[in-house]
């Protein structure tokens, strides 16, 4: 894949967020567990927020990414790989979300190699950092909700 401009990169990123939103929307529809269902719905909203942020950057309303640099716990790397079932639980949903953020991060990291110039590279780096931040956030939620006593 090759990008010719920042606009193209951002368009791509917006499409990714939309895809993720549709994915969570589908899961919310299919889940029978009330908590998982509510969680996926919340994630749809999260992805919309990300999408809006990207659009704001694209239109120049936001100057760039502002990652908080949340310390990484690398939980995702330790946990298993759940698959979607109708009776999926919040715990599995959270792991799926963590994995999705990690995948997105790795994708942008990978794309950096194809960036033609420094500008592009910088924006990809920003996107990667943003996804890493999301991953850390999901891990924190997992840590607080699931591993309250661990």
């Amino acid at each position: 894949m090759e990008f010719n401009s920042i606009q193209e990169v951002l368009d791509f990123a917006v499409r990714q967020e939309q895809k993720a939103g549709r994915f969570y929307g589908l899961m919310a529809e299919k889940s029978t567990d009330v908590v998982a269902r509510k969680f996926f719905r919340e994630m749809v909203g999260e992805e919309r927020k990300h999408e809006a942020k990207l659009k704001a950057i694209k239109s120049g309303k936001l100057s760039g990414f502002s990652g908080q640099g949340t310390p990484q716990m690398n939980l995702t790397e330790v946990l298993g790989e759940p698959v979607f079932r109708e009776d999926i639980t919040l715990q599995e949903g959270l792991i799926i979300a963590m994995r999705a953020e990690k995948d997105a991060y790795e994708m942008y990291e990978g794309l950096k190699a194809f960036a033609r110039d420094e500008e592009l590279k910088k924006i990809l780096e920003g996107l990667a950092a943003e996804e890493l931040e999301h991953k850390a956030r999901m891990e924190s939620i997992y840590d607080q909700v699931v591993q309250r006593e661990n």
């Binding site: 908590v35 715990q91 699931v146 591993q147 309250r148 006593e149 661990n150």
Partner: peptide, 9 residues
């Protein structure tokens, strides 16, 4: 396993 508990609905 005793890492945490959850409600059931």
């Amino acid at each position: 396993v005793a890492i945490g508990q959850k409600g059931e609905f």
